[in-house]
């Protein structure tokens, strides 16, 4: 993580939306297959005329502080938005990862795909209430490649 400004330090000291929701409407997991790091998202969803809206969102991270900061920022953006806007948020986040340092890209991707997994779990549960929690694995590598 580069250049720690006050805003990032605030996210590290007091990550927003950290924790879990009792009896959530859906959960989703983003996982780094390289090292087993994970982000778990819990959603409370309100269905308004067929358009689900994220009423509450919590996340937990088994990972580094960069993942916690990414989780704090992205869940802060996701709170209160509908699933369509949620998809845009995920798409914009993933689109911004080119050129980002490897570790930061992997951490942000893990949060974005866990949000996608939670929304997909919610949709799948609509059709099948017994549907399990969806896990998506990330594509970015957390490993910092040594330059020769």
């Amino acid at each position: 993580m580069t250049e720690l400004d006050q805003e990032i330090i605030d996210h590290m000291a007091n990550p927003k939306n950290y924790g879990s929701i009792e009896r959530p409407d859906a959960m989703g997991i983003g996982e780094n297959p390289e090292n087993g790091e994970k982000v778990i998202i819990h959603l409370r969803v309100k269905d308004e005329g067929g358009m689900p809206r994220i009423e509450d969102i919590k996340f937990q991270a088994i990972g580094c502080m960069t993942t916690v900061v990414a989780g704090s920022i992205i869940t802060g953006e996701a709170k209160g938005i509908d699933f369509e806007t949620g998809k845009e948020l995920i798409s914009v986040t993933l689109g911004m990862l080119d050129g980002v340092p490897a570790e930061e890209a992997a951490c942000s991707e893990m949060v974005a795909v866990s949000l996608q997994a939670a929304m997909d779990t919610y949709t799948a549960k609509k059709a099948d209430p017994d549907h399990g929690t969806i896990t998506y694995k990330i594509e970015n590598s957390c490993e910092v490649k040594e330059t020769p």
């Binding site: 330090i9 000291a13 924790g19 937990q60 088994i62």
Partner: peptide, 11 residues
């Protein structure tokens, strides 16, 4: 920069 460590996951 004091902060309480975050909750740890059951797993």
């Amino acid at each position: 920069i004091l902060g309480v460590p975050r909750v740890i996951h059951k797993s």
